[in-house]
Simulated scan of single mutants.
Amino acid sequence: MRKSLLIAAAIVSVVAFTGCKGKNKTVTGGGGEAVSGKIEQSYKEKVAQSVDFTANLEAYKQTYIVPSITARIEKLNVDVGDKVKKGQILAEMDKTQYNTNALQLANAELDFARMKPVYETGGISKQEIDAAETNINVLKETVSNLEENVTLRSPFDGVVTARYNEEGDLFSSMSGTGIYQVMQMNPLKAYVFVSEQYFPQVYIGMPVEVKVDVYPDQVFSGKVSRIAPAIDPTSRTFEVEVTVGNSALTLRPGMYARTTFNMGEVDNVTVLDVAIQRQTGTNDKYVYVLKDDGTVESRFVTTGRQVGDRIEVLAGLAEGEKVVIAGSARLLDGMKVQVIEGAQQ
Rank of each mutant, 00 (worst) to 15 (best):
V210C: 06
A9N: 09
T54C: 11
G320N: 04
G31C: 07
T280W: 13
L146A: 06
E241P: 03
T280I: 04
G122C: 08
R153I: 08
N186F: 13
S172L: 11
G168D: 06
T237S: 02
S4F: 00
Q184R: 08
G222P: 02
D267T: 12
V27H: 14
S173T: 03
E297F: 04
A315S: 10
T142N: 10
Q181I: 08
A132I: 03
R330V: 03
Q184V: 02
Y43P: 08
A162E: 09
I231Y: 04
V12K: 07
V301T: 02
V337G: 02
E92G: 06
F193L: 09
V15A: 14
P117W: 14
T26S: 15
L188V: 01
D82L: 09
D273V: 07
D333Y: 08
L331A: 03
I11P: 04
S195T: 07
C20E: 15
A315K: 11
L146N: 02
G29R: 08
V224I: 00
D82H: 13
V80I: 15
R258D: 09
D217T: 15
F156D: 01
R252D: 09
D309P: 10
K116W: 15
G30Q: 07
V194F: 08
M185N: 12
E109P: 09
T295D: 03
V219E: 15
L90Y: 05
V266K: 14
S13D: 06
G334S: 00
E196V: 07
G320S: 00
N268I: 04
P207L: 09
V301G: 01
D273S: 03
E58C: 05
T282H: 05
E45Q: 13
Y60P: 11
L105K: 01
D130L: 10
S154Y: 01
S42C: 00
N149A: 07
V192N: 00
F112L: 15
G81D: 08
E128V: 14
R330M: 08
V219S: 14
V47A: 04
